[in-house]
Design a protein around this nucleic acid. Structure first.
Length: 510
RNA sequence: GCUUGUGUGGUGUAGUUCGGCCCAUCAUGACGGGUUCUCGAUCCGUCGACCCGGGUUCAAAUCCCGGCACGAGCACCA
């Protein structure tokens, strides 16, 4: 209809700039099932947040379901951290703005995987291989079948039982279960890939209940089928995983989910996001913990005052491409500023304070002054600063601003208050409440409103964590509030563990 | 080596399926200016890209061929 009447209109619509995420292929509203499957060996990193956000965003777009699955089937190399299960649930919920629809732990789903493994062995889709890893590697390169491959399903069934039997004589590395894909497959990565292996180190959740554990490609393949996952979004480094799993799905007569990929992401300021490396660095004492503001973990970013909404916008804007990208943190910061600027109350923080004694004989001061909490959002109210009645007013300004004042004949304006004139001896007088000229404007604090405070701020390289002491405006905002320090930048209030009598905040960005 | 993916301004991204309204979108960045009692916010302007070489075509970022560059997999990790 439209095509017949106005073909150019149809075409133009296609050319319009796409907003948000691209459509999911073969997605039926209401039927989409997605999953995010991290290894619980630490809390989520900024890199993981892409998976949480993109998947949950699609779930929302298509009214679908979102599964959070803990892929904890390795007890040795990437040993699960018991605390990480809860950390990840927290991080997920904060990022996505909602809880996952389904939570699974692979270690808890072992009976399913074992049953499928047994069935596949009986069906002769998989066989037990007793070659060493090195020997098999050689066979794979030469496209030669190993002797174990000739064993019957019956024999393999016995070997399988033997693998699972503590008295069976098989130790770690002695035998694996392989998928019979073919040793002449042109892609070497797909040739009779390993599906399960023996692990003797106890699992932190289920102990020594199992000897044989599935590898990712097998566990994930089976679980995605059981959960009827419709779309898998994964890193393009897992493209061969898709190909391996598709071969298994074909044998089993299952339908493989639609698969989409993204490329590697780096953030200039952080580099990569290796959970294991961070773990080592924290244990070495290089960082204070997973929420150390120099670390690219979700909890560190949250602590620093980044909002989940900003992170969502950030990832949606980067979209879903297979390009390996390296983004400056400035992009995230920009999203965060626009996200929080209109809701963050303004407060005064004076570093390197200089106290000025002001004489106000010439002027009649009110009992108190009201300063807006936000220059634009009037409904946020005012902060009321009482002024002394005895005409002796003591205020703090930054040393740097004091120098600016001296450089402009001692004339400076205390923002939202009055023009003053000061001299080198740190004394001065208030000359006018009204703004009388273009003299520099500085932020300030009355003595009564000032309280000691520490601003925790990573240095520019993100190596050191500096304690900046200063005077902070008294306020009643609770910990966790993100504020904006006049003329400095955003920061977030947090408890001070070292000295509860002192308030503390952590630097966000300008 | 085999397999597999990606190449649009400084950084990301749209457009590539079905060639033309693309002398290429939007954002970020840098620079300049307006506004503002914050160095914030806001507004305006400027800068800057289709990896290279051929080919097809009236017409190519888009199709074909050939290069080049960078990445990933080939783990009894995820």
């Amino acid at each position: 209809m439209l095509e017949a009447e106005a073909p150019e209109a149809l075409e133009k619509r296609v050319k319009e700039r796409r907003e948000g995420l691209p459509e999911l292929p073969n997605a039926v509203k209401g039927d989409v099932i997605l999953r995010f499957a991290p290894n619980p060996n630490g809390p989520l990193t900024l890199g993981h947040s892409r998976g949480v956000i993109i998947n949950s965003q699609y779930a929302e777009m298509y009214n679908g379901k979102m599964i959070l699955r803990f892929d904890d089937t390795d007890t040795k190399i990437k040993r699960p951290d018991l605390k990480a299960y809860d950390w990840i649930k927290e991080d997920f919920t904060w990022l996505a703005g909602r809880k996952p629809d389904i939570i699974l732990e692979a270690s808890e789903r072992m009976p399913e995987y074992m049953a499928h493994a047994k069935q596949f062995i009986d069906d002769d889709y998989m066989y037990v291989c007793k070659c060493t890893a090195d020997d098999f590697k050689q066979l794979r390169i030469e496209q030669q079948e190993c002797p174990c491959r000739a064993n019957s399903a019956l024999k393999n069934s016995d070997l399988w039982n033997q693998m699972n039997d503590p008295e069976g004589g098989f130790n770690e590395g002695d035998a694996v279960v392989r998928v019979r894909t073919g040793m002449n497959h042109k892609n070497p990565a797909l040739r009779d890939w390993p599906a399960l292996r023996i692990q003797r180190s106890p699992h932190p959740k289920v102990g020594e209940k199992y000897r044989v554990w599935p590898l990712l490609d097998f566990q994930s393949a089976v679980e995605d089928h059981i959960q009827e996952v419709t779309h898998i979004i994964r890193g393009k480094d897992l493209m061969d995983s898709t190909r391996k799993q598709k071969l298994l799905y074909e044998m089993a007569g299952w339908d493989y989910p639609e698969t989409l990929y993204w490329g590697r992401v780096k953030v200039h300021e952080f580099g990569g996001f290796s959970t294991s490396q961070m773990k080592v660095d924290i244990e070495n004492g290089d960082y204070n913990g997973w929420d150390d503001p120099r670390l690219p973990t979700v909890r560190a970013l949250r602590r620093r005052g980044f909002s989940a909404a900003a992170m969502r916008k950030f990832w949606i804007e980067l979209s879903l491409t297979q390009k390996d990208i390296s983004v400056p943190l400035a992009t995230l910061i920009s999203h965060n500023s626009t996200e929080i600027d209109s809701s963050t109350p303004r407060l005064s923080f004076i570093q390197n304070p200089v106290m000025l004694a002001l004489n106000c004989d010439e002027i009649e001061l009110p009992d108190a002054i009201d300063i807006p909490c936000h220059p634009l959002q009037k409904e946020m109210g005012v902060r009321s600063w009482e002024l002394p009645s005895d005409c002796g007013l003591q205020v703090y300004i930054e040393k740097e601003d004091f120098d600016i004042a001296l450089a402009s004949d001692g004339r400076i304006r205390l923002k939202d208050f009055a023009d003053v004139e000061v001299s080198e001896n740190k004394r001065g007088k208030i000359t006018s409440m009204e703004r009388s000229d273009e003299r520099p404007i500085v932020h300030w604090l009355t003595e009564a409103m000032a309280t000691n405070c520490i601003l925790l701020r990573p240095d520019e390289k993100g190596e050191q964590l500096d304690d900046i002491e200063g005077l902070f405006e008294k306020n009643s905002y609770p910990n966790g509030t993100i504020i904006q320090l006049e003329r400095i930048g955003f920061s977030r209030l947090e408890p001070n563990d070292r000295d509860p009598s002192m308030t503390q905040m952590i630097w966000t960005h300008t």
